[in-house]
Design a protein around this nucleic acid. Structure first.
Length: 879
RNA sequence: GGGUCAUUAACUCAGUUGGUUUAGAGUGUCACCUUGACAGGGUGGAAGUCACUGGUUCGAGUCCAGUAUGACCCA
């Protein structure tokens, strides 16, 4: 067989993915095995794969593939969400290009366009996940706007309304003037912006005096309905009970007093605009102020804006500042940095706005969710540090604004039969609504034309908070066998940025609807940043093209690259060099396979070296497997990968294969060969979750396998109890081999020249046949034990023994002495620190016996070592 | 403004209830190697006042307090 010396990922990846799909390895049905379930955090249906998705889904795939190998009934449910605002914004933009305004279309026509868009772009991201190797059960793919998913949402809305948890309220909400919808608090991003602080003079009614207020938003003065001072502020005491006059519109407004006013900020005198600021709204409610809303829904000014009517708020800010200056009301301006709320989706500056919205009461829902994470630990967050953030949010939770002034999404199932505030009903469909409306209104004559459905849709998160249940039909049919089998799911992998948006709400929904947690472990990944620590974003253009990375480094290479430095919850500084490392690793393993595959097999007895090598590697594998198990249990995925990396590269390739490698041109024992292949197979199983394609490719090359024997459905290695003394002896042995290599290097002795090795040891440091390994890897012709010293040799120490290698020609006495002296001073320093402890009475009296014993042992070892070094030194100096 | 978390080698990070050689890994770096699986390789080296200042302790990278810097969350 001719195997290429370079591993070509592109050639094999599509082939194996297709094979896995054809054989349905990823599909899961309930059976008698224990389930292991993950639901994907649904990406935006029209989105494309970015680095965050790659990281996130690689981790999920690692977990699910490992579970599959461990014999669980592994089920990873994929899907997408409808991303209400983002998708609607894209559809609106696309219509605009064609010269069509949203308002020109009926709701039905618009939705048709939105579905068209979804059809064109939907699922692209899922295809990209396949390139990454994601082993999702594609037969279960879900979309939050699927009929059954929407029905679940509506059912839950009606249920929560009937329980009194959903209510309609006239509140200050975050208004996105670009998308013309409200946003939840979590969708508002606060950014620091440089702005101006305007100092404005308001006349006092009936006085010559003026009062100066400071504001960042001069355009809102037209909505002012009071001026507020702090009752303890003596500077303004004389203004109490008087009235001020708003410039330009000349509205006469009261001067009120409230301790809310910060005397230090600005002039200590505040203008109050209840329609456009949440704090001002509170003040307004408290003091019974008038509310004057000056904005249209696109944040242009309405009739209260007088001659500014129809102009945008930011245009008006400039123009009104000029007018105020001309009229002598602008005292001065100062530069000022303030936090501005912006829309996560459209980036537009948020306008606080009063309107009728639907809200979900959170207080009761939050209680079991708080308890599950912080008290009962039924749900664990990895890393744990996020529990503080979780607690803070859950304890200060506010009602959730769930309505959006959009069309793309589930329409609020509320029906109005009159203009009164309470003249509506909530029902799953129109017939029921009509029935309820007749009852509630007492008008039996009401017909379907008398009721109107609320035009708003529900927040996308109001769909996705049900995700772990609704994907299994758990809302519509709570007793179906799928939900009973797969729920609660095992792990959830997501970013900390949606801990509240999504994770916390899923927990609430889980307890509300199943009285059970939705998942046990939540793994929070870090954000992917570039090497300068900037977030990856489209606008910066610093996000690499995911598919190009896969084609450059192979999916396996990219997976390894992403995982190598992504400890849970720590941001990942993405560097393509890491993918290169992954690709290099793939190539290394590939070549290890080429080596083994190239050997001629013969029915000869195994070499002694090979026998000890096999015994050692079995132990090493057992030891490393336990470490890997521990890392996975703690969700330390990158550590688990690094342990695997070192096992294969260092232990398997650098040590094991070098030990068993037959002399050039010679055959290998059939028995040994079989053992090597078996161990190689164990490596591949451990490797498979991280590098599924490469591992399957080699696995299938090893022998002809039938469908049931694919690596993807193989069995995870049995834990082997490691032989501790063998591992310990081996580790001493490697130091000896290293010592020999160093001597060769220092003395320029080529590897092909055989050397003799002498030692003061008696050969008990590494028992068994490890001395055979020293001979092979050091090219040593013979080892001589129990010698005292050897003239004309170079020496090194391992443990308590000294080793000598006679060298022809002159030994550089000076440099030998220098080296020994360096070694000596290190050990003497060490001894000093140990003795420092031992001579401290309080240490000896207070420290545990065990610790003291260890220190005494250290002292003894150091003393023995010092003695041998000193002896060597005196030998050298006597020359 | 309030809160949370971080700060260990040039870079990215471990360091698991305070004691296991005067701190480890990967990458990078330096020197050498035209080796028969792999130069995407091999061998060997150098590199750290564990942010700073105090404190607790027989003993602190690890615990406590403060300072500085940074990140994130909330208002």
């Amino acid at each position: 067989m001719n195997i290429l010396s370079k591993y070509d990922a592109a050639k094999v990846e599509d082939k194996w993915y297709k094979y896995w799909l054809e054989n349905g390895y990823f599909h899961s049905e309930p059976d008698e095995r224990e389930p292991y379930t993950i639901v994907i955090p649904p990406p935006n249906v029209t989105g494309v794969l970015h680095m965050g998705h790659m990281l996130n889904n690689t981790i999920q795939d690692v977990l699910i593939r490992r579970a599959r190998l461990k014999g669980y009934n592994a089920c990873w449910v994929p899907g997408t969400d409808h991303a209400s605002i983002a998708t609607e914004a894209k559809v609106v933009a696309r219509l605009k290009e064609k010269g069509i305004k949203k308002s020109d279309l009926s709701r039905e026509e618009f939705l048709e366009k939105a579905w068209e868009w979804t059809g064109e772009h939907g699922g692209i991201i899922l295809e990209q996940l396949k390139k990454l190797g994601a082993s999702c059960d594609w037969d279960r793919t879900k979309f939050t706007m699927d009929d059954d998913m929407s029905a679940s949402v509506i059912k839950v809305f009606v249920d929560l309304y009937n329980k009194g948890l959903i209510y309609r309220g006239y509140r200050m909400v975050n208004w996105d003037p670009e998308a013309r919808t409200t946003l939840s608090d979590e969708e508002v991003i606060h950014e620091e912006r440089q702005g101006l602080l305007y100092y404005l003079a308001y006349d006092i009614e009936g006085e010559d005096e003026k009062v100066i207020i400071a504001t960042t938003r001069p355009e809102t003065i037209l909505g002012d309905t009071a001026v507020c001072i702090n009752p303890h502020d003596e500077r303004y005491a004389h203004l109490k009970g008087k009235k001020a006059i708003v410039p330009i519109c000349n509205r006469v407004i009261p001067i009120i007093e409230d301790e809310y006013v910060d005397m230090e900020f600005g002039t200590g005198c505040l203008k109050v605009t209840p329609a456009h600021d949440v704090n001002d709204k509170n003040l307004g409610d408290k003091h019974g102020l008038e509310v004057v809303d000056i904005f249209n829904e696109d944040a242009s000014l309405n009739q209260h804006g007088l001659h500014y009517e129809g102009k945008d708020r930011f245009v008006v800010r400039k123009e009104i500042a000029r007018e105020l200056e001309e009229k002598g009301h602008l005292v001065k301006t100062e530069t000022h940095i303030n936090k501005v709320g912006t829309s996560e989706r459209t980036k537009a500056v948020i306008e606080p706005r009063l309107s009728d919205q639907w809200f979900l009461r959170m207080e009761e829902l939050a209680k079991p969710a708080l308890k599950a994470v912080l008290e009962d630990e039924e749900i664990k967050l990895f890393p744990k540090k996020f529990e503080n953030t979780y607690r803070h949010w859950m304890e200060n939770i506010r009602d959730w604004n769930i309505s959006r002034q959009l069309w793309w999404g589930q329409q609020v199932p509320a029906y109005y039969y009159g203009d009164g505030k309470e003249e509506f009903v909530v029902a799953e469909n129109e017939e029921e609504a009509l029935q309820l409306a007749r009852e509630k209104s007492g008008k039996a004559s009401l017909s379907s034309s008398d009721i109107t459905r609320d035009p708003d849709v529900l927040d996308t998160w109001f769909s996705s908070w049900l995700w772990p249940m609704s994907v299994f039909g758990g809302i519509l049919e709570p007793e179906n066998k799928e939900i009973k089998y797969y729920y609660p799911t095992n792990d959830l992998v997501t970013g900390p940025d949606i801990l509240f948006f999504w994770v916390a709400r899923m927990i609430m929904a889980g307890y509300e609807y199943r009285n059970e947690k939705p998942f046990t472990n939540v793994y929070l990944t870090g954000l992917v940043r570039d090497s300068q620590r900037r977030k990856m974003s489209k606008s910066l253009g610093n996000s690499p093209d995911a598919l190009k990375l896969i084609s450059d480094y192979g999916a396996d290479g990219v997976r390894v690259g992403l995982l190598l430095s992504s400890a849970a919850g720590n941001d990942l500084l993405f560097d393509e060099a890491l993918c290169q490392q992954g690709k290099g690793f793939a190539n290394k393993i590939w070549n290890a396979f080429r080596l083994v595959k190239g050997w001629e097999i013969s029915d000869i007895p195994p070499a002694k070296v090979s026998e000890v090598a096999v015994r050692w590697y079995r132990s090493k594998l057992g030891q490393t497997l336990a470490e890997i198990e521990d890392h996975f249990a703690k969700y330390r995925i990158s550590d688990a990968l690094m342990a695997t990396y070192k096992l294969i590269w260092d232990d398997f390739c650098s040590w094991f294969l070098e030990m068993v490698k037959p002399t050039y041109g010679m055959p290998i024992s059939k028995k040994t060969y079989g053992e090597i292949i078996a161990l190689f197979e164990e490596n591949l199983k451990i490797l498979h979750p991280f590098m599924p394609f490469l591992s399957e490719e080699i696995w299938q090359h090893m022998e002809n396998r039938n469908r049931d024997e694919a690596l993807v459905v193989a069995t995870w290695p049995e834990p082997v109890k490691p032989d501790g003394s063998l591992l310990e002896g081996f580790s001493l042995m490697t130091e000896v081999v290293s010592g020999i290599r160093t001597v060769r290097k220092d003395k320029n002795i080529p590897f092909k020249d055989e050397l003799e090795l002498y030692t003061t040891g008696d050969g008990s440091d590494f028992a068994g046949d490890l001395d055979e390994v020293v001979k092979k890897l050091g090219n040593i012709s013979g080892i001589h034990y129990d010698v005292e010293k050897v003239e004309g040799s170079v020496s090194f120490r391992v443990g308590a023994s000294e080793y000598f290698i006679p060298v022809t020609g002159s030994v550089d006495v000076e440099s030998e002495i220098r080296k020994l002296q360096e070694e000596l001073s290190y050990i003497e320093g060490f001894l000093k620190s140990v003795r420092g402890k031992l001579s401290n009475e309080r240490f000896v009296n207070n420290a545990p016996e065990k610790v003291v014993a260890v220190e005494k042992q250290k002292e003894a070892d150091a003393l023995a070592k010092i003695a041998t070094i000193k002896e060597s030194l005196s030998n050298l100096k006597n020359k």
